[in-house]
Each structure stands twice: as C-alpha cells, then as structure tokens.
Design a protein around this nucleic acid. Structure first.
Lengths: 222, 222
DNA sequence: CCGCCCAGCTTTGTCGACAATAAAGCCTAA
DNA sequence: TTAGGCTTTATTGTCGACAAAGCTGGGCGG
C-alpha cells in the first residue's frame, strides 16, 4: 500500500492516455529518441488528436518528451551525462528533503519508516535482492513526502523519478549495492529519528552521491 | 542583453497566449486564486479555446495554476509558508548550481560575471537601489546557467523563478538588503573564481537562507 | 421550516475538419 | 553530376460544434 498512495486516479480520457503513454515510455515500449506522431498515437490509443496533444503536453512537463513548434514531439534521448546531471539534482533536492523530514515528520511517520526498514532488513537477510527496486523507491518516497514541502514533492515525484526509472530500464541497471545501500538508509533514518537535520541531509547526499559514483563506474566500463 | 538571453520567442499562437497570460498572472493583472474561465479568456485574447487550453496546460507545468478535472483551472493562491517552501527548494538547487558553476563555468564566463558585479557595484555606490530587481536576477541566472545542468536550469528558470517573481509582486517586497546582498554575491563569485565548489555552495546557500529569514521576518511583522 | 432531489444551465472534455507550416522529393540549370 | 529552388505531401496548429460532467436554483416532501 505504501507506494500505492501515489496511484493517481485518471478521471478524464486524457488522463488515462497520459498515464498509459508514460508507462509505455518509461518501460521502454516506445524507445527513447523516437518521434511521437499525433495521428499515429490517436489511432493506436483510440482517442482523438486533442487528447493525444494534451497527453503529450503533460509528458513534456515531466521532461519525458521534447517538442518543437510545427515539428512535433520526440521522446527524450538518454545520455550518460544526462543521468549524472539528474543525480546532481537528486542529491540537492533529496538532501534538502531529508533535512526537512528530520524537522517535519511526525513521530508516527518516523516509526513507520523504521518499521519499513526492519521489514526490508528481513528481506535482505533472506538473500533476495528484491530490495533494490521497490524497497529503495519506498524509502526515498517516504522521506520526500516527509519533507512536507509541496514543491519538493512535485518536482521529485512527478518529474525526476519517472526519468530515473526510465534510465534504469534503458541502461539495464538492476543494481547491486543492496546491502551497503541498506546500511546507508538505516543511518539516514537514525538521523531523522534524532531530529538531526544537518546529519540527515549530509547522509542522504552521500547516499545519492555513492549511487552516482557507482553508476558512473558502470557506465564507463561498458 | 544578459537577461535577454532568456527571451523565449513565441512562434505559435499558443506560445504568445501562454507568455501573455504568464505575464498577466505574475504581474498580478489576474489576481491569485481567481478562476480561469476558458471561454472568457478565449474572447479576451481573441483565440480559440484550444489555444487557451494549451496555454493553461503550460501554466500548470510552471506551477502557476492548478487544474481539477471537469471543474477548471485556478491561479495558485500564495501563502507565507508556500514562499518559505519555495526558498527551501531554491536553497538546495541554487546551492548545487553554485557548486557546479565553480566546476563548469569557463574562465571567460567567470570574468564576465566579475565584470557584471563590478558594474553593479558602481550602481550601488551611486545610491540607486536599482540593484535589487534586475541585478539580483542577473546574478542568479548566470550562476544557474553556469552550472551547465539542464535539469537544474529547467526547474529554476522555467519553474521557480516565475513563482518567486509573483510572490515579490503580490507581497510587495521591493526589498532592502541591497548592500549586504551585494557583498554576499561578491563572495560567491570569489569562491567560484577560486574553483572552490564546497565554499561556493555553502555561500550561496547562506545567501538564500538569509534572504529567506529576512522575508520571514517581514511577513511576521505584517 | 429544513433538507433532499431533480432539472436546467454553465463549463469543461472530446471530436472531426480546415489552415498553416515544415520536411521530402523532383525538376531544372549550371 | 550536383546544387538550388519548387512542388507536393504529411504533420502540426487552430477552430467551431457536440458530449458530458458539475454547479445552481427551484420544487417537493418530511
């Protein structure tokens, strides 16, 4: 359920098309760099061009597609340095999120977060590397929401994280760093529980910086 | 010219309407919290409803308006804590921008930035408080662009700064802090010139933090 | 007298057609 | 043969009309 809180419900037809398209893009069903023809999509998804246009507009505000006037929309093309830049933004924003979470999360929320981590620990100890995807996301989402900062939440949840997921799929990073990342998570939560804003931010920044370095290494060797 | 580099040129009709609407919103011609009726706007700006809808969509991605399905769009309502949250995001992002600028700006760009500051110094010394608006913006924009980080630039320039301007207009902060802010700017530039990433980030963060505190004080006493 | 429900009306969502712009291919001329 | 310009064609931008959902006001029943 934890993550399901973000299941935005689509009421209008453009909503559904937007969500569907976003999945298709992030999951790679439509490859990066490819052109999005309005007429083609309108037949494919059985909706009018106006709906497609609205969906594409929203995709653009997620930074998943780029439009040029009188030319059309293309899915963004992914580059290693683009991923690096994304992690730089993540480091700044999630660092601040951790700081604010240390200040603003309720005791109950912190308790829940701790419980979540214990739960994950059982899984990790069991040897399953299930952790990476769902668990990691859940952890980061909770802290972002815990910041109680609407702008922060918006930019990260609706903007950056879909792009991150897209990179993960395209560059095929299922990712090791499971146990070490788990320890880092634990320390961040401890700092938040201690209401140590300074430390929470620093630890979160390092956690993301390590991730970035890890990814850089993998990108270079391939 | 410096700032004119951001003069996005509108080619399509929706572009012009969007830019016009954005000005009208940011400058306060359309007050915060008010409803944006599509038909009303379409007669007012002499364009079809489709154009208005597209413009509103883009305004939404700037976080200047909020939409509800089957209900309509309203201009965001401004709250003191909303402004605080905005400054928290600014602190994180522009701090990172200063760090990256110290790494990525060319020597020429740094020289230009220094010259710009000297120029501003003459103005400040002359007693004109012209500085606040244009000069401050120019300084921050250059460092943001100097980061060479596309995501950072996007979020700040197209998203946050218009909101900041809107708050400035609505809450009527022409702003003192002229000379002290100038010194802070100077120190940031020095750190960037020395390629001291750590210090550049720290100084920029403090600069914005001071601004935030200053604003908080003013908000409370009113 | 108060509250609920229904009808009408306003506003948004969706659609198909037309206009305008840019890309592609062909034709001509150097 | 190739470069340049023109024509054709496909795609996007814009429009007005229709469909559907929400809000408002009046009437009915408790």
């Amino acid at each position: 359920m934890s993550i399901a809180a973000f299941a935005e419900q689509a009421v209008t037809s453009a909503d559904k098309t937007f969500l569907q398209l976003r999945v298709d893009i992030v999951e790679g069903a439509i490859p990066p760099g490819s052109k999005l023809s309005e007429t083609e999509l309108s037949t494919k998804y059985q909706v009018s061009r106006a709906v497609i246009r609205e969906a594409i507009n929203r995709l653009e505000s997620c930074h998943l597609v780029e439009r040029k006037a009188n030319v059309g929309a293309r899915i963004v093309s992914l580059t290693p340095q683009g991923l690096i830049q994304l992690y730089q933004v993540r480091e700044a924003l999630e660092g601040m999120a951790a700081r604010l979470a240390a200040k603003n999360m309720s005791d109950q929320e912190i308790a829940d977060l701790t419980a979540l981590l214990d739960n994950h620990f059982q899984t990790v100890k069991g040897g399953e590397s299930y952790y990476q995807e769902a668990g990691d996301l859940d952890f980061h989402y909770r802290i972002i929401l815990g910041s109680k900062n609407q702008h922060l939440i918006e930019v990260l949840v609706n903007g950056i994280y879909h792009l991150i997921r897209m990179y993960r799929v395209q560059f095929g990073m299922a990712g090791p760093r499971v146990t070490t990342a788990f320890d880092e998570h634990k320390h961040v939560v401890q700092a938040i529980a201690n209401r140590d804003e300074e430390l929470a931010e620093m630890l979160m920044r390092r956690h993301i910086l390590y991730s970035k370095n890890n990814i850089e290494r993998k990108l270079l060797q391939s």
